[in-house]
Design a protein around this nucleic acid. Structure first.
Length: 276
DNA sequence: CGGGGCTCCTGTGCGC
DNA sequence: TGCGCACAGGAGCCCC
């Protein structure tokens, strides 16, 4: 599942590889993936435009075009943005093909088809992100200080901490993998109400969350499920995951068996011995 | 306000 | 060996 480290990896790669490239041709193979336009309109508004820059907010990728439009992409669980050579052919998962200037095609694939590509005027992006989506702070931003984190926790005293970390309106970009890893690192049970965390635990969780996201980014993310980077390479962080998808295996810290429960409908693994 | 359930969709992995 | 089915999962939405 692409979360902040995976999406940011793809953003950096796209910014370097796609900037200045022109869309020569576009084809929509799965119309439900695009919003809100019909394929003909989508193709018309994209064709001939040059990719000016790539931003990220939460798990959304923002591809800005020179014609005043932007593409807003959410990869959800199995979306992939792939830069391939001109001879590449679509497969079962391919939803959109962009034929670029130079020797490349740019594919949007999504096995489970939950992701989307929205086309909207660039000038509407800021409002869309902050008003409609209402994203919380970027956890790796310099402005996201420990006191900002503590103030946020005070606003949601009754929420369970792990689902709270995954709430995009609370903090942006954290999903099921890194929320579990952060709780493990901070030695906090995922089901603890936010208000029950001591000052020391709040500080630990803040540091753990930021360190894990940074470390995962350094390793180009975790390839669980279907994630691949822009060049089709898997991320290298999976061997460093301590609890995610490790139910029944020994805790790397204390050797107790990792346990799995469901919180807010999401699988959640933790060590019942050293997470308190 | 918080929590639960439903929805989208397909590959995986289980039980028989 | 093969079939069929439950299940996972981000996040919006509805309901209580």
């Amino acid at each position: 599942m692409p979360e902040l480290p995976e999406v940011e990896t793809v953003r950096r790669q796209m910014a370097a590889a796609l900037g200045g490239r022109k869309v020569i041709r576009a084809e929509v193979l799965y119309p439900k993936a695009i919003r809100p336009l019909r394929p003909a309109e989508f193709v018309k508004k994209v064709t001939g435009a040059t990719i000016r820059g790539v931003d990220r907010r939460a798990k959304l990728l923002l591809l800005h075009l020179t014609n005043g439009n932007s593409l807003v992409v959410h990869l959800k669980m199995t979306g992939r943005l792939l830069l391939k050579d001109d001879a590449a052919e679509p497969n079962q998962a391919t939803e959109i093909i962009f034929d670029l200037s130079g020797p490349n095609k740019f594919f949007y694939d999504d096995i489970r088809r939950f992701g989307f590509v929205k086309l909207m005027p660039t000038k509407n992006i800021a409002d869309y992100l902050e008003k409609k989506e209402g994203f919380g702070p970027e956890p790796l931003a310099a402005s996201f200080t420990v006191s900002v984190f503590k103030n946020l926790l005070r606003k949601k005293p009754r929420s369970k901490i792990k689902p709270l970390l995954m709430d995009p309106t609370f903090i942006a970009g954290v999903g099921n993998i890194y929320a579990q890893e952060a709780c493990f690192c901070a030695k906090i049970l995922p089901s603890r109400p936010a208000a029950s965390l001591t000052d020391d635990e709040r500080r630990r969780l803040y540091r753990c969350l930021r360190n894990i996201l940074r470390d995962a980014l350094k390793h180009r993310g975790s390839s669980v499920d279907a994630y691949l980077d822009l060049f089709g390479r898997p991320g290298e962080f999976v061997p460093k995951l301590k609890v995610y998808d490790r139910a029944g295996k020994p805790c790397p810290r204390c050797r107790a068996f990792i346990q799995k429960i469901t919180l807010a409908g999401r699988g959640t693994s933790f060590c019942p011995n050293c997470q308190l």
